[in-house]
Design a protein around this nucleic acid. Structure first.
Lengths: 380, 380
DNA sequence: GTTGATTTGTTCATTTTCTGAACTTAGTGT
DNA sequence: ACACTAAGTTCAGAAAATGAACAAATCAAC
């Protein structure tokens, strides 16, 4: 389907997916084409069902009609390999989840491909239009993925080394498949479906048992030279600090991840199983809880401040599943960011907090497929 | 001149400037064009004097002829406002310096524009071909420059605030002018003329009285949302450390800049005026000198390690003017990088040291003009 | 040597894509 | 009702890219 589009058509689709609904004249200017050329391209895309007319904007002269991507011109499946059972969702081009189910997690890529293929019919059952226009599968996993978004170079969690997962799934299911690291997938989903749509450069910091991070730079996901951009979790924050499972000492991961916070609490004899518990203890004046949250928050804030200093992003989006960011932890994080950023910049970089639901990873996975559908492999 | 090129021609020029000499067939594949189209575009550019044939590569079949940019198809002037007197150079598209002179530094942008305009005739005097093909002026300065490379948003050194320097010079001299931050200019010059030509993502760390840093990401200079990407000097490296002139505490700048190293030496009663002096003292066993170099080196190494973790660049290029990197300081920096980078990556990111001469800034400035000539303002 | 294989690069008729200019359409302001 | 404005369309002609056939320059093999 995407292959049938001409290069101008694909460029247009990309511009709209980045800038939102635009009038034909605006699009012509953005692409540097004449109104005449634009007219034809838009007509073709509307006939193909890719675009549709939305609101009419009244100004002086003839009103302009905004064109937007038709949300139901393509559907995507997203699977998260971060949970067991693995969630599997079906969504449209707007990221709206249409169907949801789960499949057993496995470490064998062939078993995964099999489970996905077997799961597809029931996922698509009630949605014949999606069945017809299913345009890609996306898979999110914890680990390193190469720049073709096809091979998992390494994953500790799944115990993988150079696994061509995308190809395996593609061959078994017959559907275009792309894989991506979890944090990077969330960044793409925020850019495509979420609150970072209009921002060209931003970073996502995902806070969970581990700490993930990914960057969008100049409108593109930046993966780094070895696919390792955003490995903020293993920045040294407390030189000479506690040993980390990575082999170094004092990594951010050893102080600020939910796992670390819980472990520190346990070590201090606190009966806490979640961030909320610790926050509660801190609010009642428990010194150990306060100390732990302070330490974790300062470390995370410092790391984010360093990120801001180094990359000057237009937004920091902190996503977290557990607890809330309104307590001591969040306050300390914000404070630490403020005090460690060049005063000239302090407060200039918006920090947005987003509490995410159980669909984040699967939706992120689907967004990878959507991204490849919209932008395509060739970025000419 | 550049405006006369068609969009395909400009694309081709960009590809060659990024990838070096290529055969017509290779270029056709890279641009996704047919050999037929390529043939015509290449012929036109050769006729225009922009490209020329270089070596012939023999393989099986008809040998291929590599085309490269004609180094003398355009000339550029570069001026560094970092020194007094300000160096002013004339160079070709390869970055080869053809003429060199200097002009008095001033804080008044109009005086600068005047000095540049007055200096041009004598700079171009012995080079009539350059006079004819002078395609741009570049200016490097210490401070923040906006993304149009036209306005200096802020410069402490020059005491400027929102100065439209490029426009002022352009209007006075009649020549296309662009300005850029010093570290970013060096990064561009390394990408265009230097040793980072074939690397898509890399960072330059420039070590002098202050510490500068700039990133190339996916083949493009990344300036950051407020033009502040690369402000590594004000990363907090020693939390709660010495106060910095920026208003925070423990910035990298307060420990690892040459200025800081010299000040710390003075404070310790060492009679040192240069890095070499301190290195010498350290080599003779002076405890204070060793301590200072250790502290400075560890801090810089840690900052670079953080940069590697966050951005995973394909190369770190450390440029420095003073002293050498073979002594204790360099050793400690390298060691600190190694120990603070994810073990999986240790040694994976090449660290290249480059001792630079007095022309760096001016050549960097010229490269900004060259970059705008090659890539153009519109990156469509 | 001569022949065949191989790959680069050119030519040219044809097709695709884009433009410029005139025109239609759908409003606003008076 | 009238001009005025800007969006979007139409269509002939210009520009750019393609495909296929071909010329050119080498290697490799007999």
């Amino acid at each position: 389907m995407n292959a049938l589009l001409t290069s101008s058509q694909r460029q247009l689709v990309r511009v709209i997916s980045e800038s939102g609904p635009l009038s034909r004249t605006e699009m012509a200017n953005l692409l540097g084409l004449s109104k005449a050329a634009m007219s034809g391209i838009a007509r073709d895309l509307i006939d193909l069902g890719v675009l549709h007319e939305t609101e009419t904007v009244y100004g002086q002269g003839r009103p302009s009609v905004r064109l937007d991507l038709h949300p139901e011109c393509a559907f995507f499946v997203g699977i998260s390999l971060l949970e067991d059972p693995a969630p599997m969702i079906l969504c449209d081009l707007n990221g709206k989840i249409i169907a949801r189910q789960s499949m057993p997690l496995s470490r064998d890529p062939h078993v995964i491909a099999e489970a996905i293929t077997e799961g597809l019919p029931s996922l698509l059952e009630a949605h014949p239009e999606a069945k017809e226009k299913l345009s890609g599968i996306g898979v999110a996993l914890s680990g390193f993925v190469d720049e073709t978004q096809a091979n998992c170079v390494q994953s500790t969690l799944l115990n993988w080394q150079d696994v061509p997962l995308a190809r395996i799934i593609r061959e078994r299911s017959g559907i275009e498949t792309f894989i991506e690291n979890d944090a990077k997938a969330v960044a793409v989903s925020e850019k495509l479906f979420g609150s970072a749509r209009e921002i060209q450069s931003f970073s996502v910091v995902s806070l969970g048992d581990g700490i993930g991070c990914a960057h969008f730079i100049d409108g593109k996901l930046y993966r780094g030279n070895h696919g390792g951009a955003g490995e903020i979790a293993h920045c040294t924050i407390e030189p000479g600090g506690a040993p980390c499972r990575c082999g170094k000492r004092g990594c951010l991961d050893t102080v600020s991840s939910m796992k670390a916070i819980k472990e520190m609490s346990r070590a201090e004899g606190l009966e806490c199983t979640s961030l909320s518990d610790i926050e509660y203890e801190a609010s009642t004046g428990n010194a150990a809880a306060i100390r732990i949250l302070h330490r974790a928050g300062s470390a995370l804030g410092l790391a984010i401040a360093n990120l801001i200093q180094i990359n000057d992003p237009g937004l920091i989006l902190i996503t977290h599943v557990e607890g809330s960011f309104d307590g001591l932890f969040g306050t300390v994080v914000n404070q630490a960011i403020e005090t460690n950023v060049l005063p000239r910049y302090a407060g200039q970089t918006p920090i947005r907090i987003k509490r995410v639901d159980g669909d984040v990873w699967a939706r992120g996975a689907a967004s990878i497929a959507a991204h490849n559908f919209l932008i395509g492999p060739n970025t000419n």
